[in-house]
Amino acid sequence: MIAESMYQELILEHYKHPQGRGLRDPFDAEVHHVNPTCGDEITLRVKVDEGKVLDVSYEGQGCSISQAAASVLHELATGSTVEESLGVVDEFTRLMQGRGQVEADEDVLGDAVAFAGVAKYPARVKCALLSWMAYKDAVVRSA
């Protein structure tokens, strides 16, 4: 069963128990991103103070991959520095766009390494990247 390499237990756990879900105040920037091919969408806010990410809050709808990716993003980014978190975003993007050929740096990615299997499904890569691209956009706007 190929699917099991995509739907890792960790992904399903995050999907069923999303971390940090819900839009919160205060925030410095809010963005809304849409995946037009499937209608998945996310509204995401960031609160940044002196280079530190104090909160990433979000609300959205979509498949398990897109929802779990947002939950993992929240856990990884909140409490880290903007610089560190953007490094994780870059590594995650590299992994997702690697068509399953890229060896992920687990030290950088942490739990996000569970999405490695998604990279083999071109149609689903956008699902995984939706919230992460929204985060990158929000951080840029908050500066």
Binding site: I2, M6, Y7, C38, G62, S64, I65, R124
Partner: peptide, 20 residues
């Protein structure tokens, strides 16, 4: 979500449906 439905049907059972 239909994408999850279609993915499992395809990957686990070889069933091709359309989602979206």
């Amino acid at each position: 979500h239909p994408h999850d439905v279609g993915q499992i049907l395809d990957d686990a059972f070889g069933i091709a449906v359309r989602v979206g």
